[in-house]
Design a protein around this nucleic acid. Sequence first.
RNA 1: GCCGAAGUGGCGGAAUUGGUAGACGCGCUGGAUUCAAAAUCCAGUUCUCGCAAGGGAGUGCGGGUUCGAUUCCCGCCUUCGGUACCA
Length: 955
Amino acid sequence: MDYTPSNIEQKWRDYWKKEGIYKVSNDSDKPKYYVLDMFPYPSGAGLHVGHPLGYIASDIYARYKRLTGFNVLHPMGFDAFGLPAEEYALQTGIHPATSTETNMERYREQLGALGFSFDWDREVYTCDPKYYKWTQWIFTELFKHYYDQTEKKALPITKLAERFAQEGNKKVKAANSYKGKFTADEWNAMTKVEQADVLMEYRLAYRKIGYVNWCEELGTVLANDQVKDGVSERGGYPVVQKAMKQWYLRITAYADRLLYDLDEIDWSDSLKTIQSNWIGRSEGASIFFEVDGSDKKIEIFTTRPDTIFGATYMVLAPEHDLVAKLTTDEQKQAVADYISYVKSKSEVDRMAEKEVTGEFIGAYAINPFTNTKIPIWIGEYVLKDYGTGAIMAVPSDDERDQRFATKFGLEIIDVVDKSKYPGATLHDKAGVIKNSGFLDGMEVPDAITAACQKAEEMGVGEMHINYKLRDANFGRQRYWGEPFPVIYDQDGLAHVLEVEDLPLVLPDTEDFKPAKGGRSPLARLEDWTNLPNGMTRETDVMPAVAGSSWYFLRYMDPHNDEAFASQKAVNYWQDVDLYVGGSEHAVAHLMYARFWHKFLYDQGLVPTNEPFKKLVNQGMIQGVIENIFLDKNSSEDARRFVSADMVSEEEMDNYVKIYTHIDFVSDYGKPDSHLTAEGLKKFLDWRKIYQKATFESKDGVFKNGEVTLNEGATEFRFMTFSEVGKMSKSRYNVINPDEVIGRYGTDCFRMYEMFLGPIEQSKPWDTNGIDGVSKFLNRYWSLFFDNQGNWSVSDAAPSKDELKILHTAIKKVTDDIQRFSFNTCVSAFMVCSKDLKKWRCNKKAILKELTVLLAPFAPHVTEEIWHRLGEEGSVHHTTYPTFNESYLKEDSIEYPVSINGKKRGLAEFPSDASRDTIMEAAKELAVVKKWSVDQGKQIRKVIVVPGRMINVVVG
RNA sequence: GCCGAAGUGGCGGAAUUGGUAGACGCGCUGGAUUCAAAAUCCAGUUCUCGCAAGGGAGUGCGGGUUCGAUUCCCGCCUUCGGUACCA
């Protein structure tokens, strides 16, 4: 009987569903294990072959853990709110709720066809009011708390208000954006509104006016990580800086914990580095510079306070608050011109242009260490968002300051002698200080400390740790997101809804298109927005990252209406043991999720400090992108395309690459990526605008559907140019898994994706090797049948050789699963099945164990075999085979014999032979003699590693 | 520029602690089966000299440590990913 996946796979999926074999209970005596996939955006495009890579790996691991006696939580859900889902809805004109539901259904089907062991009863999706009730609730909790830097945890804001009433804010060490100081009396004298405004500056969820990334095309504000190269990550639309009042999350309060706790978790170095760079901790000093003839002071941050004697001027960010106040009348016009010049530049221009620009504001500051007057400038190279938005410029030791000083003719004083450290840069913090008063002669690190001490003594500065991490902009002027559970009273003060009033359901409306100019779509729904007594609702919605910041906790207890999850459930499941997902979420999602988790931990609501113990980033499965070259100089009605082999690298600039549908090339071409005339006709039909095009290749010319061949050419071939890149609709290189599954079956697809290479590596999809995996599954199947195709399994006792083959596989597969090396697992199965076939093994004792071993990888075929073997229940509920070392023992070992490290022969020794015995015997070996005595050389040394190798040193 | 990861046959890749480089698969070559093909099975397949036995070279490049290096160290080159006036 032949192995026919289509006959068995659906049958067993139905059986698993009916029997509920993947249901997970929170009541179990078994140890827990939580395997989580990053839940997908249910986009309209459906799944492509790249999506399942991580899901297959995690499914194998989850199944392995289940077989080894763990109670495994392995859920799936959908990240259904947010821009991608909404953009799709806008394109299609269908309500986001409807299209999201349709897309989720499609995803459920596609995921189902891959045979994953998800407990679908625990599905969560972020746009479900039952789910986002708790997203909103966590937001209200963030609003009600502040971060106490003494206790290093979040505490209720009410406690802070009490403290202010008793002792003011001078002694309070808390994360805040409030600059001033006040006493208890001053606090108590404040009005209710004034007090609320102050408290707002301490809350973990707060509202402030800030410069935000505004994208007019998308009609919303974007987070820093949604902006790439000055344009929106989605759509590539221009992004400008705009001052708006927005909700923020004070993630910076947790900066140090987010940084140092990276040490506790098992993530890849590259991912930890990305997070740590994003947090961007740097140690230095904050120093105040007085302004000549003004009571204002400019605060700067520097990592090199030791170079302060070389600070010959200052630069403020053009947006700095003090610019307007300090600019002298004579410079007013020049400064205004400069600011409008800076504003006129888009983010893209600003990054492309490296030219030094700036303007003197007419005022002078006093260098506190030298007491000299130094000019104050503004310049766009000083960023408003980093440090204090102002710098002391040390042109001798900072490349940027140097360029600026050179261009504008500012004084340069050399303060660091780096002659002892050739090649040292600013970041090396190396050298000897000179021209710097009391710091002269000190090594840089000592001078930094000394300068900080001095600044503190003088009361002009202190040690300061600065972070690159910014508070998270949390408002979006869009429709498809969680509404803020916030109401403003007549005084404009924000109040959050209590848990009994949650969820605040997103009002249903057909009018969900983004509004222009910063107004939110929800603001148009006046019935919903306006409340009695002049109260109004917040009309912004939360970003997509809100719902994904805690979903892993909801899976623990997904139907709970009393809490985000019961304490019992949370205490049982604890945290995610294994998290598998793409590295594109390295900053945003993983940072916010850690932040929320730490906040909940501070509340005692979750038992662990970090949410994801181990994280594996699966690589991307890329698609082959086929391109055709279009001559830039050809006119609209006479398009000229040329074959890839006619374009040299130098000529590349004259051509534009046009994406071709991958199917044209595979259907009407050859493996070396060329299109036939027929393929080109298809291409012309598909891209109607190019119907008047001419295609030139080395073989001839293709015009108006007619081919004119060059002399000597036998057929018209048009070379395309192929590259490898991310699968995306716009590049026409998406490969859908359904087709592959239809032809080879799910088990084969799963194993082939694993066989492709290491899970963490990106690789292009190609089906060239899939036959090998298919052959393996057929071979595995054939072990159970005789030559006539009849079921033939024997109860006879297995031989020593058969046991050795099986246990070699058990060892290899088990070790490799544990280190996430699934490609080598597949090859171990291939070796095992080949060896068993060689021995014509049909012993049940062997094949049954092999079936269980294979079950995590190929869940369907193994279930079929399991039942044919007459076993009860599901193969996925049985026990994992036990490895027995003794079956691998050999009587003798074949040693490689090397002469001077070069392998020259083999020699067999009993496996219990001692090192000394082998060493002596080795000297007598013919190979050894041949390379020593026979050539008149001496044996100098013999190295034996028992069980491994022999090396003889001759000379 | 800075940070991180990587570079191994025609191709995807293996070698887990410094110990037989190229497992496994694709492709290719030859053979069996077949009227023939597909499918399947068997053998071979790093390059190179040689009929062969047997040599020589070989894990991006150049050095080093070691009895022994794909693995460790130093200096380069290339590719991919992240980040970018971060004071």
